[in-house]
């Protein structure tokens, strides 16, 4: 098994941290994993992304042209990455900021109002963890508990007071994805209807 995931969003939305969290969890689960950020002369408010590759074998290329999964936290990210998700791959979109329908029918899509859910837990900055929860529920990447543990172990010290809220947000994201979880129509039909 080797899966590639791109996390993308506005700078400050926590796309890079969501990717790191998955990377820590993969490490704790004994997987091979790489995390590589977009780096460059980035602009405040510009889009930042990272690529995570998780596998059972040592990772060759840490970058991919067509990722298996994309977590798009804002509209520019959805516009940029929807076209390149691998066929039958998965697109998780922040429905709070992406108001357009999903165009592709050959991929699964979860449209999750991540900002709104995060807001319910008192902090819009939890949106990244909400979306990670949704991603994990919809795939067999890693068990939710491993990521929960990674949160406990690797949430920066200054954010430790937010741990309960982070965990709750992770579960809420997962729960939302499960309510969309497929019957034989899969997520695809869901995306089509939206």
């Amino acid at each position: 098994m080797e899966k590639s995931i791109i996390f993308s969003g506005f700078g400050g939305q926590g796309a890079l941290f969501a990717g790191q969290l998955l990377t820590y969890a993969a490490l704790d689960a004994g997987k091979h994993v790489t995390w590589i950020p977009s780096y460059g002369p980035e602009m405040r408010g510009g889009t930042a992304h990272c690529t995570v590759v998780v596998g059972d074998e040592p990772i060759g290329s840490p970058l991919v042209r067509n990722p298996d999964m994309v977590v798009a936290m804002n509209l520019p990210s959805a516009d940029k990455y929807e076209p390149i998700v691998k066929e039958n791959g998965l697109l998780v979109v922040n429905g709070s900021l992406v108001k357009r329908p999903i165009h592709r029918y050959d991929i699964d899509a979860i449209v999750i109002p991540a900002n709104d859910i995060a807001q319910d837990y008192g902090n819009i900055r939890l949106a990244n963890v909400v979306m990670l929860g949704a991603l994990l529920a919809a795939t067999e990447l890693l068990p939710l508990e491993v990521v929960e543990q990674a949160l406990e172990d690797h949430l920066p010290e200054r954010h430790k007071r937010l741990l309960p809220a982070n965990k709750a947000a992770l579960h809420e994201g997962a729960q939302f994805a499960r309510t969309m979880l497929p019957t034989e129509d899969g997520f695809r039909a869901r995306a089509e209807k939206k």
């Binding site: 091979h32 994993v33 790489t34 950020p37 780096y39 840490p62 970058l63």
Partner: peptide
């Protein structure tokens, strides 16, 4: 190269 400098691995 820059990518090895910037990336993270276990």
């Amino acid at each position: 190269d820059g990518s090895l400098g910037q990336m993270m691995e276990p």
